[in-house]
């Protein structure tokens, strides 16, 4: 049933072309020349003001990318490299200054409502009403995505149970749960709305090793069982290497390189490092280690 529903949702839009982008039938996401800057000059509400360029912080700088259906696409970068801004642009939470994003053929700005039905997101913060229980939080979330109360009451315990959350924990306030458990509830929230495009913004940051593995397994399961396309941002190079079909490295808002993990490592290989890790590859393409990149001052807006 889920397959039929997914196919209906994902296949329908494929026949439609975005006017500004060249969409291939196998593309889930096409971003073209995407630019987003923050700050600089006045921003008026009722009229779009052009900010002064000298004061701007360019968070996403002419980024283009294609993500194929059912692909897990990784975006690596330090804090402030523009990963979260990119995710917000793809998830309709930010408007691009220029460029376009198409998701299954629909433009994220023009066709916002349709795009919203296709995606969900798991961010580094679990983002819940902390006094409410996992069950109450998920009832709220699933109703917003069109589930009936009866379906939600049936499916929520199943989804939480698959992530190892016992029935007696489902009705206690979320604030009494560990961060790892809260993150699992966030994964369940995304799973219950059955997105065809899932945005994972550092979902395993700060988790203990066991929870990290659980979340990673769940991502693979979501892709395998529900034909989901996944965009994953992470600081964890090993995680990206293990999970992602292709990876883009983002540095100061720009994609500096893109390819499969093997391609990136092969490109980064040198006489001194014939078999580089993904961390080595990151250093080669950005000119610094992840730690060094993160030590640089970063704008809060990113």
């Amino acid at each position: 049933m889920i397959q039929t529903d997914q196919e209906e949702r994902a296949a329908g839009p494929l026949v439609r072309e975005i006017q500004t982008t060249d969409t291939h039938p196998h593309d889930a996401v096409v971003a073209s020349d995407l630019v987003k800057a923050f700050g600089g000059g006045s921003q008026r509400i009722f009229r779009r003001a052009k900010p002064a360029k000298k004061d701007q912080v360019l968070a996403v700088d002419h980024v283009s990318m294609r993500i194929a259906r059912n692909e897990i696409y990784g975006v690596l970068g330090a804090n402030g490299s523009g990963k979260s801004t990119l995710i917000r642009l793809l998830s309709t939470l930010l408007l691009p200054d220029s460029g376009t994003v198409g998701i299954f053929g629909y433009d994220v700005v023009r066709d916002e409502r349709i795009v919203k039905r296709m995606l969900n997101r798991v961010s580094v913060e679990a983002s819940f009403f902390k006094k409410l229980s996992p069950f109450e939080n998920l009832m709220y979330a699933t109703r917003l995505y069109g589930l009936t109360g009866a379906s939600a009451r049936q499916e929520i315990p199943v989804a939480l149970g698959r992530l190892g959350i016992a029935p007696d924990r489902m009705h206690r306030p979320l604030e009494q749960m560990s961060r790892g458990m809260q993150q699992k509830v966030a994964i369940a929230r995304a799973f219950l709305t059955a997105p065809v495009f899932l945005l994972l913004d550092e979902p395993t940051t700060g988790l203990d090793p066991r929870s990290k593995v659980d979340v990673q397994e769940f991502v693979l399961q979501l892709r395998r069982e529900h034909d989901a396309t996944v965009l994953l941002t992470t600081h964890d190079m090993a995680e990206a290497d293990a999970l992602c079909d292709r990876i883009a490295i983002l540095d100061r808002g720009r994609v500096v390189v893109e390819g499969t993990p093997e391609e990136l490592k092969a490109k980064a290989a040198s006489h001194d490092t014939p078999e580089p890790t993904m961390e080595d590859a990151f250093m080669v393409f950005t000119g610094r280690s992840l730690e060094e990149a993160e030590q640089e001052e970063e704008p809060a807006a990113r």
């Binding site: 917000r88 939470l93 919203k116 997101r121 983002s127 979330a141 917003l144 069109g146």
Partner: peptide, 13 residues
């Protein structure tokens, strides 16, 4: 609560 982005991302008017 930090939920604002999730509510604004939901497919509702």
């Amino acid at each position: 609560e930090g939920t604002i982005e999730y509510t604004f991302m939901a497919p509702i008017s």
